[in-house]
Each structure stands twice: as structure tokens, then as C-alpha cells.
């Protein structure tokens, strides 16, 4: 402990000034002493001792009964002193935990990092922002050698550190699948078994998996209970919910996932997201998904990356810059 001695003569001088004049400035200075004492880990007992010494300095003939009362006060304050010490210890260990979490968060970012693929004829934008330090949302791109791109968007139910650890497991499970094994339905069925066997019963994962074939302009996909994305039809300027049936990963070991396929036309957009986007709130009011689509539409003239970032900023502002849930939005535009 770097306990600095309280400056007795300064204290005595201040105390005298206050007793003589009841001057506000002395009180202000007393407050400063109090703050500095906490900063320098000066114990409560020492402050009271200093007060007694200062008092005896100012009044050499201090009545004995006042002196006794001070010893009494000192005794009464002992438990407070101990509590303060405990508080300081806790504060230090909390700082340690905080810095460990930020190390873990950085490690998570490295482990789960993914590179947005460059695909000719398409424009892809991605934004993923955690509500707290660690992100329970996950997205990943795999650029296969045959030119197809695997796209994963997932949300771990259960937030914070356990969710993040779970996501790392998922990522490595996916990477261990053989490379010819890339059909969305197969991937989800395999992952479901991994999650079912290895994860706590109250934890499960929603996932949307798509295999995007830029050369053929098609996308095939399956969903494990994930928040549905949207498809924008440029031809008639409408949005359609991308519905795909399937239960979340990790609930039953026999789950089967249907696979769907669609063609992507010029000017169309594929919008993938997590419930942090659709469950935005303005005060107590929930944002309807029509509103999300209107916002997307209002920025749809922008390049995909600017588009997703503008949508994010819009909802961040709407929620007073305090996200309740992790927010992930991916938009794929087929160039005109």
C-alpha cells in the first residue's frame, strides 16, 4: 500500500481556519483532502488520528473528556475502515476482471474474424456490432475454390462470455467439415448434432446458412430457427420475407433442415440479419419490420457497405446509441 502520510500541519491549519471563521473555502479544501486520501489509500483511522492530533495542537489544554470521546470515535469507525479497505480490494479485482474480458474480446475478434469476399457482379456490405464487450452474433464467409461462397449468420442464445466461447466451438466444427460437404441442409444437420451434444441445455443457436453461387446467380439456403432475412425484388420494387423452416440448433438431435434455392436478378438484394435488427426499440415501442425495410430502401441507392452502415447508424441513433442486443446486417446486391 502506498499510504502517503496525511499532512498534519496543513490539516491543523485548515481546521483552525474553519473553527475561527467557518469559511467555505476551508470546507472545500477539506473535501479535496477527503478525495486525495481515498486516492492514496489513507485509512479512516489515520484521518481521525490526524484530526485528534490537530485538535490537540490547536488546543493544548483540550479537556480530557473530549480526548476520550475522540478515542471512542476512533473505535466506532474501525468497521467502516475495514469495509472501505474491502471495497478498494474489490475495485482492484474488478479492474483485473475487466481487463481480462477485454483481452478475451480481442481474442474472440481474432478467432472469429472473417474476410468479406470480393465477388464480381455483386456488391456485399456487412456490419456487426456487439451490445456489450463480447459479440453473441456471428457471421462468416467461406470462399470455396469452385467460386461459390458459404455465408453463415448466427446468434447464440445466452449472451456474453459463454455465448462467445460457444461460437468459437461452432466455427471450428464448421471448419472441420470436409470441403465437398457444403450443402446448407447437411451443414446445419451436422452442426445441430455438435451443438446438441456439447452445449448447456439452456443455450442454443439460431443459424442461417447460404451457399451463394455468383457464376450462376443463385443462392441456396437453410435456416435453423434464425430470424428471417428479406429478398428485394427490383422488378416490382417489393420486399419478400425469406422464410425457411427449421428448428434452432441444439434442441433435438434428429432435426432436419429443408433447403431452398432461388435465382438472383439484376438489381435485387439479399438481406440477412439477426434479431438485434428487427427487435430494435424506440423507448417502449418496438420497430416493425416494415420500418426496417423502409430504412433499408431509403439508403438502397448507396454501395452495399455504405448502405448497411447507414442503416446501423439510423437504428443506433433511434435507440439513443445504446444497443439492447448485438446487431448484424449483411446485404448482397446484384449489380445493375
Amino acid at each position: 500500500m502506498d499510504a502517503l502520510k496525511l499532512d498534519l500541519s496543513h490539516y491543523r491549519q485548515l481546521l483552525k481556519q474553519y473553527i475561527d471563521t467557518q469559511d467555505e473555502s476551508a470546507l472545500y479544501e477539506a473535501e479535496q483532502i477527503s478525495k486525495r486520501s481515498i486516492q492514496h489509500n489513507i485509512s479512516l483511522e489515520e484521518i481521525i488520528n490526524t484530526h485528534i492530533n490537530a485538535l490537540e495542537g490547536i488546543y493544548p489544554d483540550l479537556p480530557e473528556n473530549i480526548q476520550h470521546s475522540m478515542s471512542f470515535l476512533l473505535e466506532v469507525m474501525i468497521s467502516y475502515g475495514l469495509a472501505l479497505q474491502e471495497f478498494q480490494d474489490l475495485r482492484e479485482s474488478q479492474l483485473e476482471i475487466k481487463s481480462e474480458i477485454s483481452v478475451a474480446a480481442r481474442m474472440q475478434n481474432t478467432l472469429l474474424s472473417t474476410v468479406k469476399p470480393e465477388v464480381e457482379g455483386f456488391d456485399i456490405g456487412v456490419v456487426s456490432v456487439p451490445a456489450n464487450q463480447m459479440n453473441g452474433d456471428y457471421h462468416h464467409f467461406i470462399h470455396h475454390t469452385d467460386g461459390t461462397v458459404g455465408i453463415t449468420v448466427a446468434d447464440v442464445i445466452g449472451k456474453g462470455i459463454p455465448a462467445a466461447l460457444c461460437m468459437s466451438m461452432i466455427k471450428y466444427a464448421m471448419e472441420s467439415f470436409p470441403s465437398e460437404h457444403k450443402n446448407p441442409s447437411e451443414i446445419l444437420e451436422s452442426l445441430n448434432r455438435v451443438v446438441e451434444r456439447n452445449v448447456d441445455p439452456s443455450m442454443f443457436i439460431t443459424m442461417f446458412y447460404a451457399l451463394f453461387n455468383p457464376a450462376a446467380s443463385t443462392i441456396s439456403y437453410s435456416s435453423a430457427g434464425h430470424e428471417p432475412g428479406f429478398y428485394y425484388h427490383a422488378a416490382d420494387d417489393t420486399f419478400e420475407e425469406i422464410r425457411a423452416k427449421g428448428v434452432v440448433l441444439g434442441v433435438t438431435d434428429t432435426a432436419q433442415y429443408r433447403q431452398y434455392e432461388r435465382e438472383i436478378h439484376v438489381g435485387d438484394m439479399i438481406i440477412l440479419l439477426t434479431d438485434g435488427v428487427t427487435e430494435c426499440r424506440q423507448g417502449d415501442r418496438f420497430i416493425e419490420s416494415e420500418e426496417v425495410l423502409e430504412v433499408i430502401k431509403s439508403f438502397s441507392h448507396l454501395p452495399a457497405q455504405e448502405l448497411v452502415e447507414s442503416v446501423y447508424r439510423h437504428f443506433e441513433k433511434l435507440q439513443d446509441f445504446h444497443l439492447r442486443d448485438d446487431f448484424t446486417l449483411i446485404i448482397i446486391k446484384k449489380d445493375v
Binding site: T206, A224, G225, H226, E227, G246, V247, V248, A255
Partner: peptide
């Protein structure tokens, strides 16, 4: 409904 849990 979305999470498919109505089936289980």
C-alpha cells in the same frame, strides 16, 4: 414460430 420451437 421463427425458431421452429412450436414443433418441439
Amino acid at each position: 414460430e421463427i425458431t421452429g420451437l412450436i414443433d418441439v
